[in-house]
Design a protein around this nucleic acid. Structure first.
Length: 545
RNA sequence: GUCCACGUAGCUCAGUUGGAUAGAGCAUACGCCUUCUAAGCGUACGGUCGGGGGUUCGAAUCCCUCCGUGGACGCCA
């Protein structure tokens, strides 16, 4: 990594080491000041050292300035305010990023923040008993983007879906599917109270009636098993198709039932007993999660002999570590947040670190149209599905909107806004910038990459160059903090700087070929960076609009 | 009731190991197309960072308290 920020940090760290013998990671921070009268970059390191060095921050800043000014990156340094170091970078150094981008192309933005960490991201994991809805869509968008960002940042990332296909609910699914199937032949069978009454199950019943005929009406042997299995398969196929439409693809699907069948669940219980983590009380088997930060102990095996949801889920998580993943990330709905401490406690009980499993909580989505909350689909009268949402607006808009806000905040998804093709809609704003660049490049002669970009010195050009320089560290930061919304913020900023630059300057100019060619290369670099950023959130970068 | 999130401009939100005058976009008002995409650009307006207290050179950020919103408190999944 040799971007400007990183070079500045390294320079300062070296000086601190030589001059004061200070070696401390993450001490030196570089930021881009809000106003450009405070430099291209600035650092507060002198203020942070004031206490330990027992010197006024301004004095430290001036001492650092003496040394730093020797750097060939820097045009000018000022010590300002309470002790900030403000840096102005040589213009041709800033522009060096253009050739870097032109050479790296779709690889620009790659970084090694993850240092090869094997990380497993589990998300969506909706039960195969119905369609994917709003909340799932937000989770799917978030998880997919996180994986893209992690992969770009030197993590070895696996996207996994945990299928809750064991237990009572699957039985209920089987019974419900059978009831709907029988209904097609005029035979009335009760759907269990906690069964599935929705239109998707009715649809499956109808399909099965057509495919299979009435043979199962009379055949009782293995009927529930059969309908359970086929219901599961059909529901999962549907989920996979909807996710595919949403451009989300899992590399791994883990079945809860398979964890039972392979004996992993039993092994897990046996291992907990060996580690003395369990006890019997009131006929049930309990896990001493309170010893590891939970607020009460939890039941693993109920008095009726069946296991709780918790037990196979522990086996599920242990299996992730077993496969060599050293970092686990889950995305859970807000309604599961009470479940977080016990799962972490379970992993800690098995000797893993409290940060080896991190669970991000996704907040609720409200659907809004014309200022009013929309609860149900107008088309079907039921809860709105992910497919319906994408068809009503667009995959690009849905993905962008869901990912552009931090996951832990409540989100209003404004359908009318998502449909708009104006600057009110941030997706179009960014895509329009890309299309605009493509249009200009189509009309210009193709230019080779240049040795120098010494003519790109106006405020708009410098803003754009600084923004391009920033991309790699934005990606790295988004990966480490698992915040795809930071990529969206970056996209808006980059698109904004481009539009500003475009409005201020004529790019294709036959009377000044040198400047024109430098600007065209700046455009090419901007196009690549914008497309790379959009790709990280899975949104298209159109050539024409 | 207990626990967990969240509360920043009219609206939607940025803002992390505490830093300079709290930032965008939208909305509103006014400008800008004989010129590469006006799905754009520019200017203006807009704030007790939910209230109060504390910690210190410095707080939207950390601590306490109160208010408001949402969620969780099963031998459900």
């Amino acid at each position: 990594m040799n971007n400007i920020e990183q070079s500045l940090i390294t320079d300062i760290e070296n000086i601190l080491d030589e001059k004061y013998g200070i070696k401390e990671e993450n001490l030196v921070m570089i930021e881009i000041p809000k106003v450009n009268t405070n430099g291209d970059y600035s650092s507060n390191v002198a203020m942070r050292l004031a206490k330990s060095l027992k010197k006024a921050p301004q004095i430290i800043a001036n001492e650092l300035k003496e040394e730093l000014i020797k750097s060939n990156l820097i045009e000018k340094i000022e010590v300002a305010g309470p002790g900030f170091l403000n840096f102005w970078i040589k213009r041709d150094e800033l522009a060096g990023v253009i050739n870097k981008i032109l050479e790296q192309k779709e690889k620009y933005g790659e970084n090694n923040a993850g240092e090869g960490t094997k990380i497993l991201v589990e998300y969506v994991s909706a039960n195969p008993t119905g369609d994917l809805h709003l909340g799932h869509a937000r989770g799917a968008a978030w998880g997919d983007c996180i994986c893209r960002i992690l992969n770009k940042s030197g993590y070895d990332c696996l996207a996994e879906y945990y299928i809750n296909d064991a237990g009572v609910q699957m039985n209920n699914l089987g019974l419900s599917v059978y009831a709907r199937y029988a209904e097609q032949f005029g035979v009335k069978v009760e759907i269990p109270d906690d069964g599935y009454h929705g239109p998707d199950v009715a649809q499956i019943g109808k399909e099965l009636a057509e495919e299979l005929g009435d043979e199962w009406l009379t055949k009782e042997d293995g009927r529930v098993e059969f309908f359970k299995e086929i219901g599961r398969k059909k529901e999962l196929d549907k989920i996979e198709r909807d996710l595919d439409l949403f451009r989300v693809h899992f590399q791994s699907w883990i079945s809860e039932q398979a964890l039972y069948d392979s004996g992993r669940v039993d092994e897990c219980i046996a291992e907990m007993a060996r580690l003395n983590l369990t006890y019997e009380k009131d006929g049930a088997l309990w896990f001493k999660t309170t010893n590891y930060g939970d607020d009460k102990d939890r039941v693993l095996r109920k008095a009726d002999g069946s296991l709780t949801y918790f037990t196979p889920d522990i086996a599920n998580h242990l299996y992730k570590f077993e496969r060599g993943y050293t970092k686990l990330v889950n995305l859970w709905g807000a309604d599961h947040h009470g479940y977080v401490p016990r799962m972490i406690a379970a992993m800690v009980a098995f000797g893993f670190g409290p940060k080896d499993l991190e669970i991000d909580i996704i907040q609720m989505v409200r659907l809004v149209e014309d200022g009013k909350e929309v609860k149900m689909s107008k088309r079907s009268g039921n809860a709105i599905t992910i497919r319906e949402l994408c068809e009503e607006t667009s995959v690009d808009a849905v993905r962008y909107f869901f990912v552009s806000r931090a996951v832990d905040t409540h989100l209003d998804f404004d359908i009318s806004l998502a449909r708009k093709r104006t600057s009110e809609n941030p997706v179009y704003y960014a895509q329009y910038a890309h299309a605009r660049i493509c249009s200009i490049l189509r009309q210009a002669n193709d230019v080779e990459q240049l040795e120098k970009y010494d003519l790109l010195t106006t405020e708009k050009e410098v803003d754009l160059l600084k923004c391009l320089n920033e991309f790699t560290s934005v990606v790295a930061d988004a990966a480490v903090t698992r915040a795809p919304n930071k990529i969206c913020n970056y996209i808006q900023k980059l698109a904004g700087y481009f539009h500003g630059f475009y409005a201020a300057h004529k790019i294709i100019d036959d009377t000044n070929v040198n400047l024109s060619n430098q600007r065209l290369n700046l455009l090419k670099a901007t196009k690549i960076t914008l497309a790379n950023a959009l790709d990280l959130i899975g949104v298209n970068a159109p050539e024409k609009m």
